[in-house]
């Protein structure tokens, strides 16, 4: 998710970090609000908040709540956390643009596990009945959810989880609901920018757009990649340093260990 969030905030969204309430800005709603830390990091680098403030994440009185909260942090367009609601709020923003004759877009970032919420499909049904080409939903299709269903494979009885949506299933579903559906490699920056650009070019039928972003959870971190148990865990200094090293940031790895020594 960090890759396409970076692309959105730095190359795609028409936003003014110094004027977060600018009425004509593009809207973005992190419907999968549990990924808030990734959002805050991108927003900090884009100038919405000081990088130092990231250290306050989840602490008392912080603006950086466990799930994004619009009443605390300027630049958050909608509070989220209860899955399925953010996508609908973003639809309201897209509808608002049409009613007010404005040209801004509304993006919603939805999880593939979140697509198990009925409200996502209520929204998919309703949005397709309006000419909402300015409504762009990105499904972060990392094929994992917190716990999910387990299926047994292998002679040793090792169990692996079912993905929340099977291969191709999301494309078929969103297409069936009447959306223009695009797919992208959620870790290939060139592909991300190409597909986002395509999404921003409305088709003649003005349909809302769903981008299925193929991603790998924990991408680039050796011990984390593809392991659903890292949905919600706290890193030790050693594991954090390992992650930085895996991501090609030896300086940050060293700094992390040095800080933990003090």
């Amino acid at each position: 998710m960090a890759d396409f969030m970076t692309a959105l905030y730095f190359n795609v969204l028409d936003i003014r970090p110094s004027e977060p309430d600018w009425p004509d800005r593009d809207r973005i709603v992190l419907s999968k609000g549990h990924s808030s830390i990734g959002l805050y990091a991108v927003m900090a680098h884009r100038g919405y908040l000081p990088l130092e403030e990231l250290r306050t994440f989840d602490s008392i009185h912080t603006r950086l709540q466990g799930h994004p909260e619009m009443t605390r942090l300027p630049g958050i367009d909608m509070s989220t956390g209860s899955l399925g609601q953010g996508i609908s709020a973003a639809m309201g923003m897209a509808l608002g643009a049409k009613l007010l004759d404005k040209s801004f877009h509304a993006f919603a970032i939805v999880g593939d596990g979140e697509c198990q919420e009925g409200q996502v499909w209520e929204c998919a049904m309703a949005a397709a009945r309006y000419p909402l080409s300015n409504f762009i939903v990105i499904v972060d299709h990392n094929k994992l959810q917190q716990f999910g269903w387990l299926k047994e494979i292998g002679p040793d009885g090792t169990r692996f989880p079912f993905p929340p949506e099977d291969d191709g299933e999301l494309v078929r579903k969103w297409t069936a609901f009447g959306w223009r559906v695009l797919e992208m490699d959620g870790h290939d920056m060139a592909d991300i920018l190409r597909v986002l650009d395509e999404a921003l070019t409305p088709g003649d039928d003005q349909r809302p757009v769903c981008i299925v972003a193929h991603t790998v959870k924990g991408k680039g971190v050796s011990y984390m990649e593809g392991d659903y148990r890292w949905h919600a865990q706290v890193l030790t200094a050693e594991l954090a340093a390992q992650a930085f090293a895996d991501l090609g940031e030896p300086g940050l790895a060293a700094a992390t260990l040095e800080r933990s020594d003090k």
């Binding site: 609908s88 973003a90 923003m93 509808l95 404005k102």
Partner: peptide, 17 residues
């Protein structure tokens, strides 16, 4: 689809409607 309707209303309200 009432759940969607109430959240859509919240989004609309953020645009000034």
């Amino acid at each position: 689809a009432e759940q969607n309707m109430l959240s859509v209303a919240a989004g609309l309200a953020t645009t000034g409607l």
